[in-house]
Amino acid sequence: HMTFVALYDYVASGETDLSFKKGERLQIVNNTEGDWALAHSLTTGRTGYIPSNYVAPSD
């Protein structure tokens, strides 16, 4: 899985969403939902949907 870094803070709007903080590292599990991606946080160990425009690929 590619690793991504959060560009902004995001507060989950539902139970299936994943909250994260700017700078948090995430792995995209499934990116077939258009503007949303299923992601796993390497920081918190949690998995949920995130807005895909809130993250960018990290080196």
Rank of each mutant, 00 (worst) to 15 (best):
H1Y: 14
H1M: 13
H1S: 12
H1L: 13
H1P: 13
H1C: 15
H1R: 11
H1F: 14
H1V: 13
H1A: 12
M2A: 10
M2D: 09
M2G: 09
M2F: 12
M2I: 12
M2K: 12
M2P: 11
M2S: 09
T3F: 13
T3H: 10
T3A: 07
T3C: 14
T3N: 07
F4C: 09
F4K: 03
F4W: 13
F4E: 00
V5W: 06
V5T: 09
V5F: 07
A6I: 04
A6S: 05
A6F: 02
A6W: 01
A6E: 00
A6T: 07
A6D: 00
A6L: 05
A6Q: 00
L7I: 08
L7K: 06
L7N: 04
L7D: 04
L7A: 06
L7F: 04
Y8D: 06
Y8E: 08
Y8F: 12
Y8H: 08
Y8T: 07
D9S: 07
D9F: 03
D9I: 04
D9L: 07
D9G: 04
D9Q: 03
Y10I: 02
Y10P: 00
Y10M: 02
Y10C: 03
V11P: 04
V11C: 11
V11M: 09
V11Y: 10
V11W: 10
V11S: 09
A12D: 02
A12S: 08
A12P: 06
S13L: 12
S13W: 09
S13E: 11
S13V: 15
G14W: 07
G14F: 09
G14E: 08
G14V: 09
G14L: 08
G14I: 08
G14A: 12
E15Y: 09
E15D: 13
E15N: 10
E15A: 11
E15R: 09
E15G: 08
E15F: 09
E15L: 11
E15C: 12
E15V: 11
T16G: 14
T16R: 14
T16N: 14
D17A: 09
D17I: 09
D17T: 08
L18Y: 04
L18M: 14
L18E: 02
L18P: 06
L18G: 02
L18S: 03
L18V: 07
L18F: 09
L18Q: 03
S19F: 05
S19P: 05
S19L: 08
S19H: 04
S19E: 05
F20E: 00
F20H: 01
F20W: 02
F20V: 09
K21P: 00
K21F: 09
K21H: 08
K21Y: 07
K21D: 05
K21S: 10
K21W: 05
K21E: 07
K21G: 06
K22I: 06
K22D: 01
K22G: 03
K22M: 07
K22V: 07
K22A: 11
G23M: 02
G23I: 01
G23R: 01
G23Y: 05
G23H: 03
G23K: 01
E24C: 03
E24D: 11
E24I: 01
E24W: 03
E24Y: 05
E24A: 01
E24V: 01
E24G: 02
R25A: 08
R25T: 12
R25E: 09
R25P: 07
R25W: 13
L26F: 15
L26G: 00
L26I: 10
L26M: 08
L26Y: 01
L26T: 00
L26K: 00
L26S: 00
Q27I: 15
Q27G: 03
Q27T: 11
Q27C: 15
Q27P: 00
Q27A: 09
Q27S: 08
I28H: 01
I28L: 11
I28Y: 05
I28P: 01
I28M: 08
I28K: 03
I28C: 06
I28W: 04
I28D: 00
V29D: 06
V29K: 08
V29Y: 12
V29L: 15
V29S: 08
V29C: 15
V29H: 15
V29E: 08
V29P: 06
N30P: 07
N30I: 11
N30E: 12
N30W: 14
N30M: 14
N30G: 15
N30C: 15
N30R: 12
N31G: 14
N31I: 14
N31P: 12
N31V: 13
T32K: 10
T32S: 11
T32Y: 13
T32F: 14
T32R: 10
T32W: 15
T32G: 12
E33T: 13
E33S: 13
E33Y: 13
E33M: 13
E33W: 13
E33N: 13
G34I: 05
G34R: 07
G34A: 07
G34L: 07
G34C: 09
G34Q: 07
G34M: 06
G34V: 06
D35W: 09
D35P: 14
D35V: 11
D35C: 13
D35Q: 12
W36C: 08
W36K: 07
W36S: 03
W36A: 03
W36V: 06
W36D: 01
W36E: 02
A37W: 15
A37D: 03
A37T: 12
A37P: 09
A37H: 09
A37F: 15
L38R: 04
L38P: 01
L38M: 09
L38I: 06
L38W: 14
L38N: 02
L38D: 00
A39H: 00
A39Q: 01
A39T: 02
A39P: 00
A39D: 00
A39R: 00
A39N: 00
H40G: 02
H40V: 15
H40Q: 11
H40M: 14
H40I: 15
S41L: 02
S41R: 01
S41W: 02
S41V: 02
S41G: 01
S41M: 02
S41C: 02
L42V: 07
L42T: 05
L42Y: 06
L42P: 06
L42E: 06
L42Q: 06
T43W: 07
T43R: 08
T43S: 10
T43G: 05
T43C: 13
T44G: 02
T44V: 01
T44P: 01
T44R: 02
G45F: 05
G45N: 07
G45A: 03
G45K: 06
G45W: 03
G45D: 05
R46I: 06
R46S: 06
R46M: 10
R46D: 05
R46G: 06
R46V: 05
T47R: 08
T47D: 05
T47K: 08
T47A: 06
T47H: 07
G48D: 01
G48V: 02
G48L: 03
G48M: 02
G48T: 01
G48N: 01
G48A: 04
G48I: 01
G48F: 05
G48S: 04
Y49Q: 05
Y49R: 10
I50N: 00
I50P: 00
I50K: 00
I50D: 00
I50L: 03
P51K: 05
P51E: 01
P51A: 02
P51G: 01
P51C: 05
P51T: 01
P51Q: 04
S52L: 15
S52E: 04
S52V: 15
S52A: 12
S52R: 15
S52N: 09
S52C: 15
S52H: 08
S52K: 15
S52G: 06
N53K: 13
N53Q: 10
N53H: 13
N53W: 14
N53G: 12
N53L: 09
Y54C: 09
Y54Q: 05
Y54N: 03
Y54G: 05
Y54E: 02
Y54S: 09
Y54F: 12
Y54V: 06
V55K: 04
V55N: 05
V55P: 04
V55Q: 04
V55L: 11
V55I: 13
A56I: 14
A56D: 06
A56S: 10
A56M: 11
A56R: 11
A56P: 10
A56Y: 10
A56T: 13
A56L: 10
P57A: 11
P57Y: 12
P57H: 10
P57I: 11
P57E: 09
P57Q: 10
P57G: 08
P57M: 11
S58K: 08
S58L: 15
S58C: 15
S58V: 15
S58R: 07
S58I: 15
S58W: 15
D59G: 12
D59L: 13
D59C: 14
D59E: 12
D59V: 13
